[in-house]
Design a protein around this nucleic acid. Sequence first.
DNA 1: GATTATAATCGTAATATTGCGATATGGGCA
DNA 2: TGCCCATATCGCAATATTACGATTATAATC
Lengths: 110, 110
Amino acid sequence: MGITKSDLFTKQQNELANMAKAIAHPARIAILQYLLKKNACITGDLVDELGLAQATTSQHLKELKNAGIIQGNIEGASVCYCINPKIWKRYNTLFNAFFREVKDSDSNCC
Amino acid sequence: MGITKSDLFTKQQNELANMAKAIAHPARIAILQYLLKKNACITGDLVDELGLAQATTSQHLKELKNAGIIQGNIEGASVCYCINPKIWKRYNTLFNAFFREVKDSDSNCC
DNA sequence: GATTATAATCGTAATATTGCGATATGGGCA
DNA sequence: TGCCCATATCGCAATATTACGATTATAATC
């Protein structure tokens, strides 16, 4: 096999897992952090920043775009990327809800 | 290739990416949610809960244990699992820091 | 001691991810 | 039009992930 059995889980569980997958690579974390810092930038900036090949960088950007967490606007010959604040807030909300406080007393094993 | 170039990124970026990877599967989300609800349970409970084979469930438990987010205590013939509150809090802290507020005005592309 | 229950591990197949060179596409400019 | 620049996409190789049956290891029970 090798295919996730999504049908066994709730919509919410699949959504959160997919969100986690979108950021489950250091290059994609680095892209998002760079966009947070610079507000916006073009692909070439990220190729320089990351140190990965242009094709690889483009692929990571595609995954982030598919997840909706960034958006790209065509700017002449370049493409300008930035965070999508609406989706970003949804990530923030869902992760916060998931990682709600755990009391130490909650976790005494059996 | 197929191997992540971890050396290109900071320790913090790799750590956050690895945390995201640990929860980047709906079965592992479901396990954590079940543990949050029940406080603690044994492997067999999770096999019933998830609907995945025993071997598969055990594998997901191993990944969560490797990530440190859960711990297992041997309880006779069974193994009792629970959240590791220390690591859980670290996850909460790092994800919160990452998903800090983004102002709408921050994300006007170019 | 043999049997049963519980869970980890092994081996393997299917699929997904990561990375990059090569190639395509489309805009700007001489 | 012809030539560069910036990106996306294709094709491929290496590796990782997901899933499960079979096996193993240990503990409880008869």
